[in-house]
Design a protein around this nucleic acid. Sequence first.
RNA 1: GCCCCCAUCGUCUAGUGGACUAGGACGCGGCCCUUUCAAGGCCACGACCGGGGUUCGAAUCCCCGUGGGGGCACCA
Length: 493
Amino acid sequence: MSNKPARTRIAPSPTGHMHLGTARVALYDYLLAKKTGGQFILRIEDTDLKRTVPGAEQEIMDGLRWLGLTYDEGPDIGGQYGPYRQTERREIYQAHAKTLVEKGRAYPCFCSPERLDQVRQAQMKNKENPRYDGACRSLDPDDAARRIANGEAYTIRFKMPQEGATVARDHLRGDIVTENKQLNDQVILKTDGLPTYHLAAIVDDHEMKITHVMRGSEWLGTFPLHVNIVRAFGWDEPVWIHLSVFLKPSGKGKMSKREAAEAMKDGYSIFIKDMQELGFTPEGVLNWSALMGWGVAEDDVMTLDQMIERFSIDSLTPSPAAVNFQKLDHFNATHIRLLTTEDLAARLKPYFTREGLNVRDDVLLKMIPLIRERLTTLDDCISFGAFFFKDEVTPNPEDLIAKGLDAKQSAEIARRAYQILGAGPGLSHEGSEAPMRAYVEESGYSASQVFGILRVAVTGQKVSPPLFESMEIIGREICLRRIQNAIGILEKT
RNA sequence: GCCCCCAUCGUCUAGUGGACUAGGACGCGGCCCUUUCAAGGCCACGACCGGGGUUCGAAUCCCCGUGGGGGCACCA
């Protein structure tokens, strides 16, 4: 791979929620730029006014920042090749469309949408390929100019060569050869004066000096068109890299809205904003998505910096990849374990607060080492650690009765525990575990029975972080009160 | 229908003609550790889509099938 600084861009349309696919392309763009000492750019492709969704652009910017993929140039921060929002570049595209017309490589088209539709219908009926029939392709230029001057609505179409073949080189697939007769005279400038993607992206990539274009493989179909446009202008081509698409977990078909809703039921999502709320970390999401389409031989747990270190466009893969949310869980949990206590504390706090819990920072810092390796997602901190911040816990009476014992025996155990733990001044881990183990020995009950009752009494739950460490953090007073309360419950049972 | 792309364990992948008894990761199963749940450690199971070539030799190159995916808009 060349070491020359690469300029890459992520160019999403603000038409909905930012999704995983966008995040992954952005990641690769970012990695390439950082690896080569170049720049990573955000460009908003908002030329379809009808589909633009308010707030979508902000969501994209927020999403990129959350992921840590900071861009060097973009609509909100500027840069020397701006503006970075295509609706603000209207004149640039119009000028370039005009250039193409003057060069004889594009032409005005006055066909109405209705006529186009009729042509398409007829073609489909005759089992022909739906395509533009070229009605305006050889209109007299003066005639066309007159009609435009008269205010007639028109589009500009790119004049595709009709003979020969177009050879386009994709970095992952090699040369892709397409017979030109398969190609169509596509609209590049719409009636509203805005360009279609085909013109806008090509012009911008050139104007913004983009060296590597990474995009989804859904663009492979129009790839020959794009290459023809670049060549019609006489510009140098960027390196084209068409990334594989993401398939549903089943591998049958690409991720759809329906599938996204299905995933949400299981606590997963393909939308960046959701993933954040679901308790996934940027590190986990990045690492996970990086590996779908990038072949890394071993040691696949990586931070962003390590990814930059190891990234190469040569090791990207062209085949479609089925998403595997279990693997997301794995990477998320792994990265949570890699976080420092302070960092994790800051990330966990909002989840506790969201539950209406009053978080004491000293307690938070102390309990984190106890729950860290039990967390798959950040919001798991609630199920594992909410009891640290509650005044009271409300154990389920049945859970207070140890396996193989009855309520009376369980109450007796709780009473003994109360005496033993209440004997000392504090409730240190070491100070309380030893006498409790001694009690287990002499009583003949099993450790799991005795500790189980205590666990439910103190934490209110059957599954919890290590008992004695937890009690030490909660403190003697509260622990004793909770045990007392449990005894009361057992006596009533 | 037409065009294009892809093809190694269930999934993500390594592999670029001999070093392959096909490696890693997730998941799955088992064992160890253990007060619950995890984490951790160890072990196991598990794949070159099929058929033809080329070659002394093919997971790797070529062709044909098959399967999967994407696209055929004044959407991106």
